[in-house]
C-alpha cells in the first residue's frame, strides 16, 4: 500500500488528503500484550512531530505513542475508551488511535515504508 507508512516507534500512518490516521502496529500490540487503557489527546490539540500524543497501557506497562507528523488532532477513536482491546484485535484497522491534519503533508513521505519497517522488526 503506497499510502501506508511507519515510524521506528511502531506506529503506522495512512494519509487521506492532508489528514493522517495513526495507530500502533501489529508488532507493537503483540509486544504489549493485553491492552487495558488508551489515553488519547484532546481534539484540537496542536502537536509537533515526535511529541507524545497518546499512552497505551497493557496489564504490565505503559507505553507512549508519539505523533508521527506535526499538525492538529482532528479526531480520536471513540471505540477505544470502552473497548481498548480493539487494539489487540485489529491494530491496523478498527484499533486506530487518532487523526492529525498535517501542517506539512511532505512529512509523510519521510516516514518508513513497509520494507524499512519490516527490516526494523526483523520480520523482513
Amino acid at each position: 500500500m503506497p499510502n501506508l507508512r511507519y515510524t521506528k516507534d511502531h506506529e503506522w500512518v495512512t494519509v487521506d488528503g492532508d489528514v493522517a490516521t495513526v495507530g500502533i502496529t501489529e508488532y507493537a500490540q503483540d509486544q504489549l500484550g493485553d491492552i487495558v487503557f488508551v489515553e488519547l489527546p484532546e481534539v484540537g490539540r496542536t502537536v509537533a512531530a515526535g511529541e507524545e500524543v497518546a499512552v497505551v497501557e497493557s496489564v504490565k506497562a505503559a507505553s507512549e505513542v508519539y505523533a508521527p507528523v506535526a499538525g492538529q488532532v482532528t479526531e480520536t477513536n471513540p471505540v477505544l475508551s470502552d473497548a481498548p482491546e480493539t487494539v489487540n484485535a485489529d491494530a491496523a484497522g478498527d484499533g486506530w488511535f487518532l487523526r492529525i491534519r498535517m501542517a506539512d503533508p511532505g512529512e509523510f513521505d519521510q516516514l518508513l515504508d513497509e520494507a524499512a519497517y519490516a527490516a526494523l522488526t526483523g520480520e523482513a
Binding site: 487495558v36 487503557f37 489515553e39 499512552v55 497501557e57 496489564v59 506497562a61 505503559a62 475508551s81 481498548p84
Partner: peptide, 8 residues
Amino acid sequence: PEGRGVVR
C-alpha cells in the same frame, strides 16, 4: 484510582 489509567 479514578479513571482507567493504571497507577503503578
